[in-house]
């Protein structure tokens, strides 16, 4: 059932109901009440620190340094998280793998949000034939289960993109492929939500007003309507990061994920699951980090969902 898994649940629609407190204050009040969400934020910050600050203690060369005499060493003072099949230090790898995994999560989310919002906004705002065409396409994408589509797409693109150099780091082309592929297979839910919001919002007075003063279509879409539909977009985007990280792990598990030399938490798990018994540190650490990250993001997403729910907002205090 992992094929159908994703944030398909329709999200609550935030309309512009107001209360004496400002929206931001209200959201924060509600968010604070969701203790797990607050804990999630803290853990996420720690995880980001882990993979950013950690890079000051290790170089990427060290993360990729193999030493066959040191393979399968359990955690020790020298290698606090142990070493892997070819003697690479797992601590250093989880740090650099973390950067990539988080980056994949974020970039895939950005792709997803951009495509989803754009298609949803255009379809909802213009309506008519354009709407029908775009929604047919969205439906077509929706009808293909995500994991198989991910597999087909990553296979197709796998040899098309060479390694790239970014920020002084070398990324295997497969990182770009995975980001694109995950992003391009998970925007459909968001597009539908955005479209639905646009459909209802475009008839509202403030839009008519904007039109009267001669605002351009782009300005109405991005400056007037979009801000009013941010709540579901934010929630969806948050959960999108978690989904992208998990999807990367699945695709890596099935052997078409990010390829060496780049480490990710997902591809560290790829071979490691074979040693679930004999060398548990191989899978506990990257696996634990994935679970922790996804878990925190999901908590934050859940907190945001509760906090941004307009009905709940009115209810507060």
């Amino acid at each position: 059932m992992e094929t159908s898994f994703g944030p398909t649940a329709p999200l609550a629609i935030a309309d512009a109901e107001r209360s004496p407190l400002s929206l931001g204050q209200l959201v924060w009040l509600r968010f604070k009440r969701h203790k797990m969400a607050v804990i999630g934020v803290v853990i996420l910050i720690l995880l980001i620190l882990y993979s950013v600050v950690g890079a000051f203690f290790f170089t990427e060369a060290e993360a990729n340094h193999t030493d066959l005499t040191l393979k399968f060493k359990p955690p020790s003072s020298e290698h606090p998280l142990g070493t892997d099949v070819i003697g690479r230090d797992i601590l250093a790898r989880t740090i650099f793998g973390g950067q990539i995994s988080l980056m994949i999560g974020l970039s895939a989310m950005i792709v997803q949000v951009m495509v989803g919002v754009l298609i949803g906004a255009i379809a909802g705002y213009y309506g008519g034939l354009l709407d029908s065409i775009l929604m047919r396409f969205t439906e077509a994408m929706f009808n293909i289960p995500q994991l198989p589509l991910l597999l087909v797409l990553s296979k197709m693109l796998s040899d098309k993109i060479p390694s790239v150099n970014l920020f002084g780091r070398e990324f295997s082309g497969s990182v770009v492929v995975i980001v694109a592929v995950i992003g391009l297979t998970s925007w459909m839910g968001l597009a539908r939500i955005v479209r639905a919001n646009f459909l209802s919002l475009r008839e509202q007075d403030f839009v008519t007003a904007a039109k009267c003063i001669g605002a351009s279509n782009a300005s109405i879409i991005f400056e007037h309507i979009l801000p009013n539909t941010m709540a579901p977009v934010i929630v969806n985007a948050t959960l999108g990061v978690a989904n992208a990280i998990i999807n990367e792990a699945y695709v890596s598990f099935l052997g078409v994920g990010v390829m060496p030399p780049t480490a990710t938490w997902g591809n560290m798990l790829n071979g490691a699951y074979k040693y679930i018994e004999s060398a548990p540190w191989l899978w506990i650490f990257p696996g634990g980090l994935i679970v922790l990250t996804v878990l925190s993001i999901n908590f934050v997403g859940d907190g945001l969902r509760d906090a941004l729910d307009p009905r709940a907002l009115v209810e507060t205090e």
């Binding site: 690479r88 060496p260 071979g271």
Partner: peptide, 28 residues
Amino acid sequence: LNYQAVAQQQLLEVGIDLQILSYDADIL
């Protein structure tokens, strides 16, 4: 994939830079 990483490092020690790539067999 594991061997690639080892070879890359051993060649770097003598000053040869190995760019490693991998493909599905039916693509390679």
